[in-house]
């Protein structure tokens, strides 16, 4: 079997979904990274799962991310899928506004997405549409905020013994 290159993966994806679907294409440290929209993410994952050529049917991990400064694209989800047959990984990112943090769920495709999505909900408040049991997983249920968002500082801002006059942190 010929070795599957990142170029071939990208060609296959653009052939199926069109070039305008993928933006910000890059290969940081050799791992093909594409950005797409939340409308497209599930069809793309389903295609990667079912495609006999790519066989990307292993969801390695997914996690949320928060960029407060990018307008209407504040929140993101990052999916890492892996083709165990070809040993090629693919990173797919989606970004969406924090005011409307709704993403379709991947649990119908991957059983493993269940807790990963609950974790992203717990940390970032991302709501996964169609998730069977979207409740907090690591934090207590009665917590009323999503702690990984950047506007929650890690340490208590009122503490004076931690003021760093030299480095401004």
């Amino acid at each position: 079997m010929a070795e599957l290159t990142n170029q071939a993966v990208l060609e296959r994806l653009t052939q199926k979904f069109g070039e305008q679907t993928f933006t910000d294409i890059g290969e940081p440290y050799g791992l093909l990274t594409v950005t797409t929209t939340r409308e497209q993410i599930i069809p793309i994952l389903e295609f990667l799962h079912a495609d006999e050529f790519l066989q990307m049917n292993f969801l390695t991990t997914m996690c949320g991310i928060h960029y407060p400064s990018s307008k209407d694209q504040e929140l993101g989800m990052i999916y890492h899928v892996h083709s165990l047959v070809h040993n090629v990984r693919l990173r797919i990112k989606i970004f969406f506004p924090i005011a409307d943090p709704v993403v379709p769920t991947a649990t119908k495709l991957y059983a493993t997405a269940n807790w990963m999505e609950r974790e992203a909900f717990d940390f970032y408040g991302i709501k996964f549409e169609g998730h069977p049991n979207l409740i907090r997983i690591l934090n207590v249920e009665d917590m009323d905020y999503h702690p990984m968002l950047k506007h929650y500082p890690l340490e208590d801002g009122t503490r004076e013994d931690k003021v760093d006059l030299f480095f401004g942190r």
Binding site: T60, T61, C63, I65, H66, I78, H80, A111, T112, N114, W115, M116, E119
Partner: peptide
Amino acid sequence: GELGFYLVSDGGRTPYRMHFRRPCFIYYQA
């Protein structure tokens, strides 16, 4: 299992985002 480290750096002294792929978090669901 596969212990993954996903590190996003924005050029600072700390990670911008650090995500650990903890194998047992993922398979304990089963």
